[in-house]
Design a protein around this nucleic acid. Structure first.
Lengths: 248, 248
DNA sequence: CGTCCTCTTGACGGCTTTCAATAAAAGTGG
DNA sequence: CCACTTTTATTGAAAGCCGTCAAGAGGACG
């Protein structure tokens, strides 16, 4: 049993399976977790930074700000998610990272990618896979924002959050605490906060969801998924192309 | 001088610089180019396929179709672009690839990624970098579709195409042949073809662009870029983290 | 207990879509 | 090379979805 742990190792182990040796490599590299309060900006775009993070606890989102001052939320990140990869290969951060809840994140050292690519090809390939899965998720979101009605876009965000939380926490079935403001949902869907409010109310009136306090409950998940044109891709990862694990 | 060539080697050489040995590896792997006619669907989403392609000549675009029948164009791909990576790590293709012009593409073998990760870490890292650059580009597009006006979105697509073509072909300064229909521009921007037409006409009336036949000319590129809130990221690739090239 | 943030709701306006009809262009077959 | 068909571009009118503005209510927090 290892004294230290690694968020990244846990994540990769679940998705792909790790050997003890691979796990040891990651444990050795990972730095101690860092805490942030709800609303805190972990990193701002255009900052010089090639750090990588793994979410250990809580939610955050990545976003970009336009010159008009409008904000586009690109993606929500949950425990186990690898964050900041896109900025890691550019000179400066492309995305702002903001904590939705109190969070705990593990920072990965600057040289992580170099080390993995040079010495641990199978681990590098896993990270590549996760990055490509994110790419596909972003494509789904673009299609949602570009082609769907306001109601469908809101439904799509809710469905995505529910499905992704459920993968992480088996005890979640049909409801979750949503720490987002309606304004933030608007920034993710390309709508105003006011209109998000109306769409949520419509979904409640139609019996698709229910709310109490800050909890959202799915009453008719089939209809929600249909409304949102939602595709769950969480089970589609193809691991057959990965290089074989090293022989001890 | 090599008898055979490799589109991928050319691309990586321009972006990162290749050793002769690295080039030889890629030349050995690359298959002979394949031709497609304008409008031809190279690959359809949900098809079982983990092929990778490099564009040698012409344009294509990747897109997804929603159940409503609407289509979201995700990205245009120009010569040298690596296409299909996102689908390569999933069991099935996530995106449809459609030729905008007559095109010539090089197919890369199924095992390419595995070979590169296992045996040529620096090449794998380069491909990872390109993939992440695409990720950032997709984020920019999402912000455009989610937050900007119709005119700005159209301007943004035109600016993106111009800038990217100019990197590939130094002879291009302010005009290019646009093989896209206004409907296709609409599918990329989340607008209807009719409204794209109106926005293009507005841009012409304002003296920002001019058209003749299927050619678009930028009359006031500064204003176009400003309208589009366009950020040229083509020079932002950070190559310092790449593993060192192998010693011969 | 007061302040700030978020949610809620209504009225109004405008941007974009939809529908429709024509013209122009491109592709096809003779 | 010309007639015919299909696709694309263009334009107007009307409708609708969503944004803007505004005001009040409810909660969290100090």
């Amino acid at each position: 049993m290892t004294a230290r742990e690694s968020c990244l190792a846990d994540r990769l182990d679940i998705a792909f399976g790790l050997t003890a040796k691979e796990r040891a490599v990651l444990v050795a590299l990972e730095q101690s977790p860092r805490q942030c309060r709800r609303g805190h900006v972990v990193r701002r775009e255009r900052e010089r930074s090639d750090d990588l993070y793994i979410v250990r606890n809580g939610w955050l989102f990545s976003s970009v700000i336009l010159v008009s001052g409008k904000r586009q939320i690109l993606r929500f990140h949950f425990p186990g998610d690898l964050v900041g990869l896109g900025s890691g290969v550019l000179g400066e951060a492309a995305e702002t990272l903001t904590a939705v809840t109190d969070i705990e994140m593990c920072t990965l050292p600057r040289g992580l990618l170099r080390t993995l690519f040079a010495e641990h090809p199978r681990l590098a390939a896993m990270i590549f896979s996760l990055a490509q899965a994110d790419h596909v998720a972003m494509a789904d979101r673009l299609a949602s924002v570009g082609q769907m009605s306001a109601k469908a876009r809101v439904a799509s965000v809710l469905a995505d959050i529910l499905v992704r939380l459920r993968v992480l926490d088996k005890s979640i079935t049909d409801s979750f605490h949503i720490g987002l403001t309606q304004e933030e949902i608007g920034d993710a869907t390309g709508l105003t906060g006011v209109h998000v409010n109306r769409m949520i109310r419509t979904l409640v009136e139609e019996g698709v969801i229910a709310r109490s306090n800050s909890h959202v409950r799915m009453l008719d998940e089939a209809r929600l998924v249909q409304l949102a044109n939602y595709v769950d891709r969480s089970k589609e990862l193809d691991t057959s192309w990965l290089p074989p694990p090293p022989r001890d």
